[in-house]
């Protein structure tokens, strides 16, 4: 099993009944992915893209209608018991029992995974220490802050030293400070415990920071995959963004921009005109001049190295940052 990937899925299909005469909902339409042992794979995509369904199938909570998958070398459909021994799950909702203390939550999880009472207590103390929760160990988890509970969630998922850890939107709902802290903990633990992680997220910075490999999913399919750097450099050159003035004519702006030699992928999203260029800084002045000449007022302009949002925009036709803002 040394050389086989920790996660390997081929052509996963899952449809949910629509209910009350509505057509069925296709959550996964032939999704495939592979994660090598010891790596962090991020599934990136908006709500409803199929991220959680993928986690449910790989963690044996749900069964795929079609396709095959192995986790730590075990087939999820035929050997769910073997898979369950090898994985830890940090679900979107907290897996912690608020009526139990931190220690009790961890010891129970350890006992259910076959640790002896003594081993479970030792491991609980060790994890509480690593996550900086030792002071709250004997307080009921119901009285903890959201950030602390989320850390305990991750600790619960790690109690039995799993080969594969599923982190389903681990930092959703946390404030920026708690998010940054949890990221640092996850990074440290992945190195320490040598666990393979499948992370789902709709935060681009989270995927950029934690993942070795990013898989972008949309409508139940993989639309792009690679390391964050590969994905970004696949987009030739820099991104140019120009904020257009009020009452702008989008069509005229695009036409004017397209006449500038060396610019590619010109799009308008709201009041922002975006384009790509091999050397963005050199093309910004001619772009502004062309827009002003066409009677389009320019409020602000910038050049940036491509980020994952640009990658996402390229592959799905939607800006994730904009969608997240709209959702918030």
């Amino acid at each position: 099993m040394q050389n086989s990937p920790a996660l390997d899925a081929h052509g996963l299909v899952k449809t949910y009944p629509g209910g009350r005469g509505r057509p069925p909902v296709t959550a996964l339409a032939g999704l495939s992915l592979t994660a090598r042992t010891g790596s962090v794979l991020a599934l990136l995509g908006p709500n409803g893209a199929g991220k959680s369904t993928t986690v449910k199938i790989l963690s044996t909570l749900s069964r795929a209608d079609a396709g095959t998958a192995t986790v730590a070398g075990h087939d999820v459909a035929h050997r769910p018991d073997q898979v369950r021994r090898a994985i830890g799950l940090v679900a979107q909702r907290s897996v912690v029992d608020p009526m139990d203390t931190g220690t009790e939550n961890l010891v129970l999880a350890g006992r259910l995974h076959g640790l002896s009472a003594g081993e479970a207590r030792t491991r609980a103390a060790e994890l509480l220490d690593v996550f900086g929760l030792a002071d709250a160990a004997h307080r009921r988890a119901g009285t903890w802050s959201g950030g602390m509970v989320r850390k305990l969630d991750v600790a619960v998922g790690l109690v039995h030293r799993p080969q594969v850890l599923f982190l389903d939107e681990p930092t959703t709902g946390l404030d920026p400070e708690a998010r940054a802290e949890l990221w640092a903990q996850i990074e440290r633990l992945v190195r320490l415990e040598q666990v393979t992680v499948l992370l789902t997220t709709h935060y681009l910075d989270e995927a950029d920071r934690l993942a070795d490999q990013v898989v972008i999913v949309d409508h139940g399919r993989v639309v792009a995959e690679g390391t964050p750097d590969e994905l970004k450099s696949a987009l030739a050159g820099d991104g140019l963004a120009v904020e257009l003035g009020l009452g702008h004519d989008a069509g005229r702006a695009v036409d004017a921009a397209r006449r500038v030699a060396g610019l590619a992928d010109v799009t308008v999203d709201g009041a922002t005109l975006r384009a790509r260029a091999a050397r963005g800084a050199a093309l910004l002045p001619p772009l502004i001049a062309a827009l002003e000449e066409a009677g389009v007022r320019v409020e602000a302009a910038s050049v940036a190295r491509p980020g994952l949002d640009d990658v996402y925009l390229r592959h799905t036709g939607r800006s994730m940052a904009a969608m997240a803002e709209r959702a918030a």
Partner: peptide
């Protein structure tokens, strides 16, 4: 909560 999912996995 996610407790049931945790137990079942």
């Amino acid at each position: 909560r996610g407790v049931m999912d945790r137990l079942l996995t």
